[in-house]
Each structure stands twice: as C-alpha cells, then as structure tokens.
Amino acid sequence: MNAFIDFIMGPMVWVAFLIFILGLIFKMVLIIKDINARESYVYSYLTWKHSLRSIFAWMTPFLPQSTKQSPVFYSISYIFHLLLFIVPIFLMSHIVLINEAFQVSWVALDDGLADILTVIVILALVFFAIRRHMVPEVKYLTSYKDYLLLIIVALPFITGFLAYHQFFFYKAMVIAHVISGEIMLILIPFSRFSHMIVAPLTRAYMGSEFGNVRHAKDW
C-alpha cells in the first residue's frame, strides 16, 4: 500500500505532468502537420493581427455579443476557467510540495480564500451540470460524456476540499485527490479538454477569415 502511495505521490505526478504537457505539444504538432499536409490554404488567410484581435476580443468579458446575451453563463464560465488555473497553481499545499521537490516557491493563496475559491469552482461545475439538464438547447446536445467531463474536473476540487478539511478518511481522500488530479491532467490532451489549445487555433482561423477576408468582426 505504501509503495502504491509513494508511486502515485511520486513518479506518477511526474508522469501525469509530462503526459499533460507533452500530450498538448504532441497534439499541437499533429494538428500543424495535418494542416500543412491537407489544408495549407489556411495560411493564405491567417494573419497574426486578425487572429490576436479575435482572441483578445473573446477574452474580454462582455465584449462579444454572445457574452452580452448570456451574461450569467459567461460570467460563471470566465470565473471557472480562471480559477481552474489559479487555485491549483497558487495553493499553499501544492506550493509546499513543489518546494520540497525543487526548492522553488511563489506567493500562495491564503488557505481560507483558496477554500472559498474551491467551493466556487465546484458550484460553477454544478451550475454547468444543472444547465445541461435544464436548458433545452444544451440538453439536446448533452450525452453522458458531457457529465463525465464535468465530473472529471470536479473530482480533484471536491477531493482536495474534503482532504483539506479532513472531514473523513483523510488519507484515502488525499490519495483520491492525487489520483483524480492526475487523471484530469492526463486526459486534457486526449479529450475535449484539449480545447485549451484548439480554441485559440479555431478562433484565430475564424478571426482571420472574418477580419482579413470578410472585413468584419467575429464577435
């Protein structure tokens, strides 16, 4: 048992991060290779200017018309995505672990605040799930896989939260937390979470088609 714990807390963390990062790089390389081989015409239209213009427009809260029309959803989504990165990166317990391994550290979130943020992330995911169930046009598109994705993101937050508060089975919780965190990281490049790198590409292409060819905005 201890060997197992050592493994998932040790080498497996490495493996998960490597798969996460290399997987994304690998995916990016594959996409670019595929574009060169099959759709190289896109380069005739892509421009940095229009790509970035579109990406930044869509990163600006409430600039795109779509965000104005669904303000609640977009607000929650923006917050969710921000916290998805901020919470784990600036979490004291995470920084401590990293510090032990690499002797580096950075500012940490106050634990109480981190706790609240964690709850916000979990609530955001609950909101997404309810929305999936309640809003007809979303429900129509939803299959069990979409809920699964939500659960995969939710688990590290839920288990981390439970472990932190040491409500029950602390040890088991930490193990569950680490495993779920690793699963999520590993899955990012190979699931629809890969939108993390594909989104900027599709946005850049649409932004360029609109900006460069159509002389129109795409937001």
Binding site: S54, P64, S66, F210
Partner: peptide, 9 residues
C-alpha cells in the same frame, strides 16, 4: 460562428 466562443463554423 460569431456566437460560438470557439468560432466553430
């Protein structure tokens, strides 16, 4: 495509 955050066509 102007309402999809990914710009899906």
């Amino acid at each position: 495509s102007m309402y999809c955050p990914f710009g899906i066509d």
